[in-house]
Amino acid sequence: MTMFHFINCAILAFGPHAVYYSATPLSEHETLGTSIKAAVVYLLTTLAKLICLATFLKVSDTDSFDLYQELIKASIGFIDVVGIYFALTQLTHRNISQAHKFQAVGLGWAFADSVLYRLAPLWIGARGLEFTWEYIFQGLEANANLVLNLSLAALVSLMWLRKNKPKSLIPIIYACVIVLVSMPSIVSYVRKALGWQPLKVVGFELISSLFMAFISWQLFESCQRPST
């Protein structure tokens, strides 16, 4: 029964990635290789990030929100952007379009993130006899993260790879990237400083990720127009 619960949570956490891959044209273009390579890049990026975090961050005993620390954390988050840029430029898969490429990279990125951060806690926690809502929330969080990572990949591809974009949109793109990168810090602010309940935090994550996705989509569309 507890194994059953674990499987349910795992489906909720990792299922959307598979569905996304099979439902969108990504599967038709066989971009799985790109996604896997993106996942590998994600691993290396995370390693670099962890080293930076370990170097620059203090280990705080209290569970309070420290603005200075969170700022450092957010700025270290920009390593992600570099990683995604690297993945987008280096992993050339000739026969796919810009739009599909960023999706493949974002998908691989999000999947690696989910596996790395959620699989072990799920395996250890959700199989236990004790029932908590925590693992269901984690599954929902994984969904929000997928959306966020896709948006980030889309914006990064806009930021550096598209040359002929409207000048007026550039600051908005940059602002959105900053917001996306600092999303973990915002969530931690909401959780620790405002003391929100987990349910509220997850709801916030889901809604904000959808909102950011909508903005990114609009930006992407408006950049697409002049070129087509």
């Binding site: 059953f4 619960h5 349910n8 909720l12 299922g15 959307p16 004790e130 029932f131 908590t132």
Partner: peptide
């Protein structure tokens, strides 16, 4: 050890919800 356990019914409903969501 005292565990708060969910019922089988709950897990079935949960599976149903996740499945329909996907």
């Amino acid at each position: 050890h005292i565990y708060q356990v969910a019922s089988v019914t709950f897990d079935l409903l949960y599976l149903l919800a996740v499945g329909s969501y996907l």
